[in-house]
Amino acid sequence: MRLPIITLTLLLLAHAPAHAGKTLDQVRQRAQLTCGVSTGVIGFSAADSQGHWNGMDVDICRAIAAAVLNDAAKVKYVPLNAQQRFTALQSGEIDLLSRNTTWTLTRDASLGLHFTAVTYYDGQGFLVQKKLKISSAKQLKNAEICVQSGTTTEKNLGDWFKAQGIKVKPVVFEKFEASIKAFFSGRCQAYTTDASALAFIRSKEAPNPDDYVVLPELISKEPLGPVVRRGDDEWFAIVKWVIFALIEAEEYGITQANLERMKASPDPAIQRLLGGAEDSGKLLGLERDWAARAVKAVGNYGEIFQRNVGSASPLKLPRGANALWNKGGLLYAPPVR
């Protein structure tokens, strides 16, 4: 409640909005990127016990800080719950929203924001108590379903069950913590959110993970990706292309480990991406090794995935739709050319 009011006030007072091209200058001036993240979704953005942020969304922030400031550590993380995230971006409190946020028409076209690129193809699923012996979401008739407000989740739930002709009772919480606490105290028969988050909720938050199962159905498309403010095309391009560069790097087999060797590669495409023969950076207003810096800081897309949510992480999510386009997935970056 308070944040929208503060935002309104800011909208009022800030008569001169952050003008085109200004974000890059501001970030450079303060030598820090301000990145909006979640309050704690392990694998995407969560702070560990020492206060260090980890996750895929966090690595995107780090990659951008590396490309722009040549230092992946120069990021200030602002934890935002589902409701606060867009207002924080609109008001200029953050430069970038990198927080499991679904790209939808309403958000893209009416909030004064731009979605940059998809960093994770997700879908909405259900976590249910095993003792109910349910194998499909279609059996959730009359069920009470815990859900966090301010999410696409809430509306998908309404849409999908309406289409199925099934009535369910949503129990809606403002805070993530309260919503999962209520679910695990047995208040709801099911919990719903993005399937990627369900994996973490089951394994990390459940008193006994074996008492719960994730249902097979995904009831929606949830393409997640970073968001920037409208009206700053240069910044929009930078964020977009850093993400594309991470995907391209995977495609060309450039990793954190072999980066230096790759810089000597005779392949013109690799030369271009890593700033050898051609200066691709100047088109974005960055140094010529912008992409190499990003890869050096966090690795290519595949490495980011495996480390945070994939086989090298406790979540063990399969690449699935998030594999490269030439490996049966959906990830396809326009060429850095």
């Binding site: 409640m1 929208p4 589902a82 409701q83 309403t106 815990c146 407000s149 301010g150 999410t151 809430e154 509306k155 129990v171 809606v172 919480f173 403002e174 805070k175 309260a178 919503s179 209520a182």
Partner: peptide, 18 residues
Amino acid sequence: VAIGYPELVSVANTTLNQ
């Protein structure tokens, strides 16, 4: 809104967010 009862502000919040 903190404990999931759908009163005015909770519903308005959801509307606002959608």
